[in-house]
Design a binder for these strands. Structure first.
Lengths: 176, 176
DNA sequence: CGCCGATCCGGACACGTGTCCACTTTTCTC
DNA sequence: GAGAAAAGTGGACACGTGTCCGGATCGGCG
């Protein structure tokens, strides 16, 4: 029995990778995986074992930001009716997206896998449920749908039209 | 003056590339550029000069399909009111997207460049304009917005929810 | 017909991604 | 503390993308 604990060097390696990635992202928005590996002083194998995809790494780097975003949902719900809260939350997402494309990439890697269940999806679910109870948002909408619609934010040309398109999306989610 | 005409071999090469690409796509949905080059018996340079991006190549391959899609817009408008026509057209897009992801990729490469002006955008503009005149579709929507929203179709997990999400989008574009 | 220069060819390169596995290091056990 | 097994390492590889440029090739012209 007695599960072996994870090796000390493994932990520090993982931490150093995230650290290095964060630093690299301050200078450019590029994030070559092999550069991360080299800068962190680890091999490609180590990097990819810790973070199978670039998204996984970005998710870790921007975890804090994502957490703020997720946490803002209940706050908004406390201060506004569900529809307004939802609308405001969408704007928050857009703002984050504009500053750091990475946040977007992170949430796009959305875990469809079992157990893990994406916190962003959770936040959206909350907002949708509130709107549903309130009778202002369509009942046939799931977080998955919203995530799909929000995907446009990752396109580079979306920046300017973002808020307008969000308007259209929001309009479509309201009950008629 | 007297513009030199394009060399005969250049023309045949271009044609052969498209031909080969089409054949490769019948077996798999993958389309490695270097494989195309090799199969067509040309160098990478030649391939990339003719089609700078994979999307450009796909656009050429699926040109016929896209043309059908574009041509269907006026037909639908002739037989239905603008809102219905638009809704039906969106379904057409989704159907094409499901069968051939390539069509999607093709239209996503949407020429923002001058002069060329994307035929798909043209079709959308027509539909939108009709809806605007009719008073059933929002006046503040551009083809660009619709294209952005339609982007979700290229995500692999969109397949099942596609029609539902299109419903939401359509709902958002209607006047309230 | 044959030359000349514009045009086009095509493969070598530089680079990034992601996988694989022989080897090293760490932890546990005694 | 010593030994062994497990856990982790890291760099070589295979592959795909896209660029670049020396040289072959074609079309125009005398």
């Amino acid at each position: 029995m007695a599960e072996r604990r994870t090796r000390a060097d493994a932990v520090s390696n993982r931490a150093r990778i995230v650290q290095v990635a964060r630093e690299l992202l301050t200078s450019t928005s590029e994030l070559p995986m092999n550069a991360v590996a080299k800068a962190a002083g680890v091999g490609q194998g180590t990097l990819y074992r810790n973070f199978p995809t670039r998204e996984a790494l970005l998710a870790e780097v921007y975890k804090a930001d994502v957490d703020v975003l997720v946490a803002s949902a209940p706050d908004l719900l406390a201060q506004h009716d569900a529809a307004a809260a939802f609308r405001l939350w969408l704007d928050n997402v857009a703002d984050y997206a504009r500053v750091k494309r990475g946040v977007l990439a992170a949430l796009e890697g959305g875990e469809l896998a079992a157990g893990h269940h994406d916190p962003i999806a959770g936040a959206i679910d909350r907002l949708l449920a509130a709107g549903r109870d309130e009778g202002t948002l369509r009942a046939d909408v799931g977080a998955q749908d919203v995530l799909l619609l929000l995907g446009f934010l990752s396109r580079p040309e979306a920046a300017e039209r973002a808020h307008h398109v969000l308007d259209l999306i929001f309009n479509g989610l309201r009950v008629r």
